[in-house]
Amino acid sequence: MPKKLIKRFIPDHQTIKQNKFIALFGTLLHDANLWHLNRRSAAGAFGIGVFFAFWPVPFQMWLSAAVAIPLRVNLPLSVATVWITNPFTMPPIFYGAYLVGAWILNTPANEFHFQLSWQWVVQSVETIGPAFLVGCGVCAVFFGLLAYFGLHLVWRCSVSRAWQQRKLQRQQPSA
C-alpha cells in the first residue's frame, strides 16, 4: 500500500530530470537506484525531504536532491517531500520551530509582526534569529528521523498485513 500511495503523489522522473536546478547533477541522475521505490529508498528519501523542509532557505529542493543522490535514495520522493513547507504551511511550521528554539534556549518568546522589508529581516535576525535557527535545526533532525523510522514502520506493517491477508486467502477452501 505505501508504494502505491507514494507513486500517486511523486512526480515523474522525466519531470524531475528536466528541472533546471536538478539538471545540474547531469549524469548522476542516470543511477537507476534514484528512481526505484522500495522501503529503504522511500524511508531515506522521506527523512531527507522532511529534514530539509525545516531549513529556512529558498533552495530546499536542490539541497534535498544533493543529499539524496549520493545516498542513492528515491530522488522524486526526496524532492517532493520538501514541499511539506509551502507558502501556506511555512508560517505555522516556522513559528513552531521558533517556539521550540526559544524553549531550548530558555528565552521568552517575543511577539513579532511580519513585515516585508529588509530592515525587518535584519532586526529579526538579531532578536528572534538565534531561537528560530536553533528551533529549525532541532525540528529538522527530530522530524527527519521521525519520518525515516515512521515510514519504515508503516511500510513494514503494510507488507506484514498483506502477507497475512494472502495467507488467509490461501487457507480458505475454494468453492
Rank of each mutant, 00 (worst) to 15 (best):
residue 30 H to T: 11
residue 163 W to Y: 09
residue 51 F to H: 06
residue 72 R to H: 07
residue 70 P to N: 09
residue 92 P to S: 10
residue 86 N to L: 09
residue 113 H to V: 12
residue 158 S to R: 07
residue 151 L to T: 09
residue 41 S to I: 01
residue 158 S to T: 09
residue 86 N to Q: 14
residue 171 Q to S: 14
residue 162 A to I: 12
residue 109 A to N: 04
residue 87 P to C: 04
residue 2 P to L: 14
residue 153 L to I: 10
residue 159 V to A: 14
residue 146 L to C: 05
residue 74 N to G: 03
residue 160 S to L: 15
residue 126 E to C: 08
residue 84 I to W: 07
residue 168 L to S: 14
residue 128 I to F: 04
residue 160 S to N: 12
residue 129 G to L: 06
residue 60 Q to F: 12
residue 127 T to V: 11
residue 37 L to V: 06
residue 64 S to K: 07
residue 137 G to A: 06
residue 172 Q to D: 13
residue 17 K to L: 03
residue 140 A to Y: 05
residue 30 H to S: 11
residue 16 I to Q: 09
residue 22 I to F: 12
residue 78 S to L: 07
residue 175 A to C: 14
residue 172 Q to Y: 14
residue 167 K to C: 06
residue 153 L to M: 11
residue 164 Q to D: 11
residue 138 V to E: 05
residue 102 A to C: 06
residue 67 V to K: 08
residue 123 Q to R: 07
residue 39 R to P: 01
residue 140 A to N: 09
residue 59 F to M: 13
residue 145 L to M: 00
residue 173 P to Y: 12
residue 9 F to N: 08
residue 34 L to T: 09
residue 124 S to R: 02
residue 33 N to H: 12
residue 33 N to T: 13
residue 103 W to G: 00
residue 81 T to L: 04
residue 84 I to H: 03
residue 126 E to K: 09
residue 92 P to H: 08
residue 26 G to R: 13
residue 171 Q to H: 04
residue 175 A to F: 15
residue 26 G to Q: 04
residue 44 G to P: 01
residue 19 N to E: 10
residue 58 P to Y: 13
residue 84 I to V: 14
residue 52 F to K: 05
residue 118 W to T: 04
residue 106 N to G: 00
residue 123 Q to P: 00
residue 93 I to C: 03
residue 54 F to R: 03
residue 3 K to P: 07
residue 12 D to M: 08
residue 15 T to S: 12
residue 132 F to L: 01
residue 105 L to E: 00
residue 121 V to E: 05
residue 7 K to D: 13
residue 39 R to H: 05
residue 39 R to I: 10
residue 60 Q to M: 06
residue 62 W to R: 15
residue 114 F to P: 02
residue 44 G to W: 05
residue 74 N to V: 01
residue 95 Y to I: 05
residue 35 W to D: 02
residue 157 C to F: 13
residue 3 K to A: 12
residue 59 F to H: 09
residue 119 Q to S: 06
residue 67 V to Q: 05
